[in-house]
Structures are given as structure tokens and as C-alpha cells.
Nucleic acid binder design. Structure first.
Lengths: 218, 218
DNA sequence: CAACATATTGGTCACTTGGCCAATAATGGT
DNA sequence: ACCATTATTGGCCAAGTGACCAATATGTTG
């Protein structure tokens, strides 16, 4: 994109670095973390590979940092603190199950795959998991306080919901659409069970709020 | 291994092909499907890369076939048809959750990752998933008939249990040990919920049978 | 035992990857 | 307006990949 010709445009280091990172994130979200390559990033910015190496001497660090920012961005959007705990949980699970979340699941799948050969990536995954658990545990505690959720072990419930999400995400690379409603609502169903909610509480919201925005009033 | 020297030993094509496939499976189970490479396989057999190419002109086919056999072997061992449905389900989930199953989870993780860029692998994954679902659905139906399990939707329950297994397997690449019992018993807990069993029915068996062999008598 | 079919070798080729570096040009400070 | 700093380039290298093939040796067959 932009001018395919070569006149060199010099930018302040911080800006250039951010630009490179953004390009890497874009590739990660669109094609997977393992497609982040010196040349792929350079090409997408119409820049020489050596420049990317100048800012990220080790590609692995760029990949890890791209994952961190991509994952953090996604997650921060999920935990918007508006509405009741039940609304927030519902919104969280709905958007995590929706079709636009597939890219996110693929991202995590990529990251876990890379973790096997990259200690840095393994650490990043671990940290972001822990962060997500902390946020969700907090949400669960709020919901218990407000009476939205049952009286459960917040940590255990959080772990269960996340494992359900991961189980759902395992199919993100599958080209076929889901064949059974048990697939589609697995996360909501498990969450109901783990949160000790009445059957259908989250499922109903999930199918209703599929359009994205929550329309209820408090 | 064997003789590192070069005298060429000529074997019947079928045997050689099987030998190559076995070597590929060994690599897949030990280091991951993506480590299956012409040279890696050749080296492990003390043979030239060209020979592997002679039997598998496209490496991708070797990888897919290695996954098929590895996965099929693992799964067939899981569905041994001895004991009551409850015993069989318990044994299944226990061994699927045990430490020796980590290699299997990594295998599937690899396969799903490769599925994104390989239509053949995606098809293999899909087929083996369907096979596993068929076997488990059958087991669930038997258990419903014998009264071991509650009166549930067999297909939905099967889907839920497999998604729980996949959620559990998502952490197979993580170097850290599990920190919470909700992790360890997630599959058993979900299965109890999905099968409408009394709380703890499978969990108790899981923690007891952790040694591997089932010691009960009928 | 000789001849044949072919399993096996050794080598080549094109391609991609990460990494590195001297030379160059753009920018900001003086 | 000059100059020093350094962002940026173009080019190179080594390693690893899949694919391919002519030549060779091996086991079997007639």
C-alpha cells in the first residue's frame, strides 16, 4: 500500500517501531502468528527487511510482542465495565463465541503452538492467561456479591469457563461450520453450570444478543 | 540407531513404506507433526532423504498419514470395550486427562494448526473427530440403556465432553503444571454434568485410577 | 547364473527463513 | 548552513526446507 516507489522516508524511532508492531499484529490477526516474518512485515510496510531487523533484532521478540498487543487489545474490549455482572458476563461470552472472535481463537492457538519451541512465547501466554483469569475472577466475585451468580468457588468457576472457551476455540481452525447447537452454546452452557445459574439464563442472552450490542436497560 | 555405516539394504516396498510411516509417527508423537521432515525421517532411519521422497512424493501426505495412524492408534486404545459403560467412560476420561496423554493432545494441537494451511490435514482432522464422536455417542447410548448415565441427548453430551477434552488439551503445550484442581478434573466434572451423573461419580474414579490400571472387579 | 526390475543413493536446484553489515541519506541540533 | 547522528537501504550469508533425477547396487526371477 501507499507509494510503491523507493524514496526513503525517515521516521522517529518510536513511531517506526510502533508502525512495525502494528503491521505484525495485522498479520498475526489475519494469517496467524507464524506468518510474521521479517520480509512479510517489511513488505506490508513497503520497507526493507533490514529495517525490521534494526528495531527487532530477534524476530521471536516481535512475534511475542505482536501476540501480547493483539491479545491485550482483544481482551480489553471484552471486559468493558458497563452493566450488571450478568450482563457483562453474557456480553463477554457472546462476543467470545461469535464469528468475529474466530481470529482471536486462532491467535491463541498459534501462540500456544509456538509456546512449545519458544520460552518467551510460553511466558507471554502464561501471563495473559493469568491476567484474563484475574479479570474474570473479579467479575465473578462481583456477580456473587450482587446476587447475579450463585455462591460458587470463584477461582474454580473462572478456570472452568476459560477451559470451555479454549475448548470452543479449538475448532477455530476448522473450515466447516458448527453442526450442533451443543457446539454453539457450549460456553454459555458450561458457564451456567459453573456459575450455578438457572438453565438457559446465558443461552437466551447469547442467541438474542448475537447482533453484538446489548439492548437491555437496568 | 542401528548401523551408521552405508551399505544399502534393500527392503520390500510395503515394509519400507511402513517403516517410514512408523518413523514419522514417532517424530510426530515426540516432537510434533511439524517436525516431520524429509531429512528428519530419513536420519532417524539412517537412510537418504530421496528414499523418503520415493515413497511419499509429497511430504504433506506423509504428515497427514502419520497423524491418521498416530491418532487412530491412540483412540483405539482408549475405547477398549471391557467393563460397564461407566467404567469405560471413566477409564477413557482418566487416561485422556493423565500425563501420558499430553503427547496426544499436542498431536491434535499440531494437526489443528496445520489444518489452517493444509486442506488434506483439515479433512483428516474432521474425519477422526467424527469417528471419535461416533464411538463416544455409542458408549453414551449404552450407558443410558444400562442406567449408568442419565437420560440425556447423546449427541449433545458427546459434543460437550469432547469440547471439554479439547479445552483441557489446549494447555498441553504449557510447560507449567496445573495449579488448580478445577483444571485437573475439568473433563470429569463436565462429563458428570453432561451425563447427568451425581456430583463426584467420575471425579472419584479419576483420582483413584490415576495410576492407570483399573483395579476393580465386576 | 545371468539379466532384469527397481529400491536406494548422492547430488542438485529453487526457495524461504533469520541474521548481519557497510554504505547512504535524511533529520535535527548548533 | 553545516554537521553529526542514525534511520534506512541493498546486499550478503548460512541453514533449512521440498522436490527432483541420473546413476548404482541389490534382490529376485527366468
Amino acid at each position: 500500500m501507499s507509494t510503491p516507489r523507493h524514496g526513503r522516508t525517515r521516521k522517529p524511532p518510536a513511531a517506526r517501531r510502533a508502525e512495525i508492531l502494528t503491521a505484525a499484529v495485522r498479520i498475526a490477526l489475519g494469517e496467524g502468528l507464524d506468518r510474521i516474518t521479517l520480509r512479510a512485515v517489511a513488505d506490508s510496510l513497503d520497507v526493507r527487511p533490514g529495517l525490521v531487523h534494526h528495531y527487532f533484532p530477534a524476530v521471536e521478540d516481535l512475534i511475542v510482542e505482536a501476540f501480547r498487543t493483539a491479545a491485550a487489545t482483544e481482551r480489553s474490549a471484552l471486559f468493558e465495565a458497563t452493566g450488571t455482572p450478568l450482563e457483562r458476563m453474557s456480553r463477554l461470552l457472546t462476543s467470545l463465541t461469535g464469528p468475529q472472535a474466530q481470529a482471536g481463537h486462532r491467535l491463541w492457538s498459534s501462540a500456544r503452538h509456538i509456546s512449545r519451541s519458544s520460552a518467551a512465547m510460553a511466558m507471554a501466554v502464561e501471563e495473559l492467561e493469568e491476567l484474563g483469569r484475574a479479570q474474570m475472577t473479579e467479575l465473578i466475585r462481583e456477580g456473587m456479591g450482587s446476587g447475579d451468580f450463585g455462591d460458587v468457588d470463584a477461582t474454580a468457576t473462572c478456570v472452568r469457563i476459560y477451559m470451555a472457551i479454549d475448548g470452543f476455540g479449538a475448532y477455530a481452525n476448522s473450515p466447516l461450520p458448527f453442526g450442533h447447537e451443543a457446539y454453539e452454546f457450549f460456553v454459555a452452557d458450561v458457564a451456567e453450570w459453573a456459575l450455578d445459574l438457572a438453565r438457559g439464563t446465558l443461552r437466551a442472552r447469547a442467541s438474542r444478543g448475537a447482533t453484538g450490542t446489548t439492548v437491555e436497560r437496568s
